[in-house]
Nucleic acid binder design. Structure first.
Length: 430
RNA sequence: GCGAGCGUAGCCAAGUGGUUAAGGCAGUGGAUUGUGAUUCCGCCAUGCGUGGGUUCGAGCCCCAUCGUUCGCCCCA
């Protein structure tokens, strides 16, 4: 083992694993593209102040988890701990809100939080982010949630749960907060230490404590749903109705609270039971106040973030194998054959085949063995005899059938070969 | 930031103070100097995450450190 290793909480995504990532990205690109969402890419670091103002200085993410440093020009810089703030900054800076009534955006990339790593939690991890800015319509909430469930379903994931809540407007929340403090204060001594601290700082967060005694006390705590204004209530009912219209199953969880200050009204999480303590795959909500908070015009918005690592963990459990294979494996030995093999390989690649060329010059037996393990449908063999008369042996590995064909005939035979390759691939699956 | 467990080859591992560190997979060379199953034979850790310590003797015990896993916390 070498001296230098990847930093704590960071990981290499190796070739064997990268297929899962590509698949998620391809499906996301497809689904989001069909829903008229456009990709945006924003910088990985921003002014520290953006996150302090956007996410809230009292939150753990800003308070103790940011990678913040001073650059050579004495600016305070922070590696983004989430995507939304940077995206909103970009929207405002480029006045994207002026070019249309609604902006539908998505992006994917690394985010950074200084936390203790464990399964499903890293210091550098990746999020897929989807946002709709400029609409307060309940259909926007439903659309965005539907995109998340569609994506997960298309990837083949089952037994996920969707929790839904409304955290109302800041005014609703102020009343509720006061009610919670009234309720919890008499129990103050019985609460766990963390919750005692949260009592004054952020009593909403007590609601999802995992501490046993605290959970018992929480049982009878007032529900936020009783503190929503009638407008907020109506809004929440509309969102639920739209989800029902779309056939999306959800459960209302009045104790669902989210860690970032900017959320209003709709809040939701999609969780899996297969991820241990870090169960949330996708989480998000509405943030009607964020754009003005960051200096833009009144712009209601909703979005979510999805943890790529967590999603990939689930996919790996679902389909442990997942190797890309090659159509042809080219084998050769001797100066002239090896030179011709390179040309044949190139020809086949240009015809659209995936081709691996064996570079070893080792015995044909060894090369054939590698051909077998490569998963190729057929092996192309070039020795002195073939080089002499300009042919190549094509051996179909499943059947063992072998025939010689002229190298110059390859383009004409392409369609035929393609048919046989697909047939061979289908046979493997069956 | 707190608590607990774990770290032996590319991978999975046996080994719980006594001399040359099992085994399997993968890799590689050969039996088979032009053909992939199987089989057989050879090779593949002066080294047990790293650094100290205890001991006649340490993969094994102790301390520190790094990494990782599971909780707490937090969240995607």
């Amino acid at each position: 083992m070498g001296d230098i290793q990847a930093l704590r909480g960071t990981r290499d995504i190796l070739p064997d694993e990268v297929g899962y990532w590509q698949r998620v990205e391809a499906v996301a690109r497809d689904i989001l593209g069909k829903a008229a969402y456009r990709e945006i890419r924003t910088p990985i670091f921003e002014q520290t102040e953006l996150f302090e103002r956007g996410i809230g200085e009292a939150t753990d993410v800003v308070g103790k988890e940011m990678y913040t440093f001073t650059d050579r020009g004495d600016r305070s810089i922070t590696l983004r701990p989430e995507m939304t703030a940077g995206l909103v900054r970009s929207l405002i800076e480029h006045k994207l809100y002026a070019t249309g009534n609604v902006q539908r955006l998505w992006c994917v990339g690394p985010v950074f939080r200084y936390e203790r790593p464990q399964a499903g939690r890293q210091r550098q991890f990746h999020q897929l982010d989807v946002e709709v800015l400029g609409s307060a319509d309940a259909r926007a909430d439903a659309e965005v949630i539907a995109l998340a469930t569609d994506l997960l379903q298309t990837l083949g994931l089952k037994s996920l749960t969707l929790d839904l809540n409304s955290v109302g407007t800041p005014a609703d929340r102020q009343d509720y907060r006061a009610a919670l403090i009234d309720y919890f204060t008499p129990y103050s001594a019985e609460l766990d230490d963390d919750s005692q601290n949260r009592l004054t700082r952020n009593p909403l967060r007590i609601l999802d404590s995992k501490h046993e005694r605290t959970k018992e006390i929480v049982q009878a705590a007032p529900s936020i749903l009783d503190y929503l204004s009638s407008i907020s209530q109506q809004r929440f009912e509309q969102v639920q109705q739209r989800l029902t219209d779309l056939g999306i199953a959800y459960q209302v969880n009045p104790r669902l609270v989210r860690g970032l200050d900017y959320y209003t009204h709709t809040a939701f999480e999609i969780q899996s039971a297969d991820l241990g303590a870090q169960a949330t795959v996708c989480g998000g909500g509405r943030y009607d106040g964020l754009v003005t908070e960051l200096g833009g015009p009144e712009t209601p918005a909703i979005g979510w973030g999805l943890g790529m690592e967590r999603l990939v963990l689930l996919l790996q459990k679902l389909q442990p194998s997942g190797g890309s294979t090659v159509d042809f494996y080219v084998v050769s030995k001797g100066d002239r054959p090896e030179a011709q093999a390179l040309v044949v390989t190139q020809t086949l690649r240009r015809l659209g085949f995936a081709v691996e060329l064996d570079l070893s010059s080792s015995a044909f037996g060894k090369q054939l063995k590698r051909a077998d393990r490569s998963g190729a449908a057929a092996c192309l063999i070039l020795g002195d005899t073939e080089a002499e008369n300009g042919t190549v042996q094509i051996k179909w590995l499943a059947s063992g059938d072998q025939q010689a064909i002229a190298q110059t005939d390859l383009p004409d035979l392409a369609n035929d070969l393609r048919r046989q390759v697909t047939a061979a691939a289908a046979a493997v699956l069956a």
